[in-house]
Design a protein around this nucleic acid. Structure first.
Lengths: 208, 208
DNA sequence: GCTGAAGGTGAGCGCTCGCTTAGAGTGCCA
DNA sequence: TGGCACTCTAAGCGAGCGCTCACCTTCAGC
């Protein structure tokens, strides 16, 4: 049995590590509000009322509004890094692992779009210390993707002129999904993941 | 002689259409502030003081803070669309025109990063009417890129399974440049433009 | 020299923000 | 049953927000 709860849709709810229950409800409410309006446009009163609590209740579980963002960003980056690591260190050729990394990373950005939006676009609202901690995680994200591409180049499967530039472009493509993906749109997260994996394999010159 | 002024760096300053001078200074100050901190985290006092004026002066030239964002977004989208139209309707094969479209669009996002950030990421701060107007421009942006890809498919130069999905991915790649590009980083806008044009041609299966 | 339009300022209004405080309700254990 | 720890609320503080208003300066036209 998984340690993570699953929703009706079969998607993993990644906030089970946040306790007690009231703290988790506040955090989930904050993710939704930050994703919809952005950190600065969200009020603590809005977060509390979404969680069905009074404004003061927020400060029992979190010192400041920024701490809420920090917790969300930290957990979200951990999850994103975990997804990439699992794919990058799995079995199979660099081609297969890059395809799996891109498709699972994209699925996460599309399927958990609200979280991904906060994680990818609200970084600058963090203070210097928290931002530095998160930036370290992002360098690890970059390193995972770059590693797979380097292996593919070394094995001769890939044909890449600028490894770091291509790494950046691959991540760029995946991350931007959080900006445009629409749950009510014509594509499922799985479909976008498959399409983007194909496009990325083309970008690195992998044989089909 | 061009109707646009040029800076010392040779880059076109696109705000010459904004008059009088004080209104332009306020608008340029707002672009910088919105790009740095986001629309909601920027105060009208900050904008005015960057322009060397008192807080009240802003309201002589603009009805509200949101009108400033609207003007910036409108002019920026017009410029972005103009860049794409010029490239897409130019001479040469679909391959050449797609490469030119991507490289010039990316150059704009990198070289005029502050404007591009506001244009691409502060859309949701606009009210319903203004947002609808801007969304119409974005559909035209999409149509320009899709048009070139469709021509390449029709001529047999491109090998694309999902034209609309690939169009979205191409635009996605270009737009995300505004998020990560760093003026002090190792790459010039020209270099990123050339790299991304190459990557996009690979994505559409164009012969090298 | 006078006038009106245009562009500017200092002061501050009404409001909402993030956050605090005093105290009430609830359940656990001696 | 009493007391304590924990959780939550009602009320509201000080600060800073977008924006306004009364007034000042500059300058072209007569």
């Amino acid at each position: 049995m998984s340690t993570a709860q699953e929703t009706a849709g079969g998607e993993i709810e990644p906030w089970e590590e946040v306790t007690p229950d009231a703290a988790r409800r506040l955090l989930v409410a904050a993710v939704e509000a930050f994703a919809e309006r952005g950190y600065h446009a969200t009020t603590t009163r809005d977060i509390a009322s979404r969680a069905g609590m009074s404004p003061a209740a927020l400060y029992i579980h979190y010192k400041t509004k920024e701490e809420l963002l920090h917790r969300i960003s930290r957990i979200g980056h951990d999850r994103a890094l975990d997804i990439l690591r699992t794919a990058a260190s799995g079995e199979g050729s660099p081609t297969q692992r890059l395809a799996e990394a891109v498709s699972s990373f994209v699925r996460w950005h599309a399927g958990r779009r609200t979280t991904a939006r906060v994680v990818q676009y609200e970084l600058e609202a963090l203070g210097p210390d928290a931002r530095a901690e998160i930036l370290a995680l992002r360098r690890q994200v970059d390193a995972e993707v770059r590693g797979v591409i380097e292996e593919g180049v070394a094995s001769g499967e890939f044909d890449v002129l600028d490894v770091q530039g291509t790494t950046l472009a691959v991540l760029s493509l995946c991350i931007d999904v959080a900006r445009w993906f629409n749950v009510d749109g014509p594509r499922t997260p799985d479909e976008v993941g498959a399409l983007y994996a194909d496009l990325v394999l083309r970008m690195v010159g992998a044989a089909k």
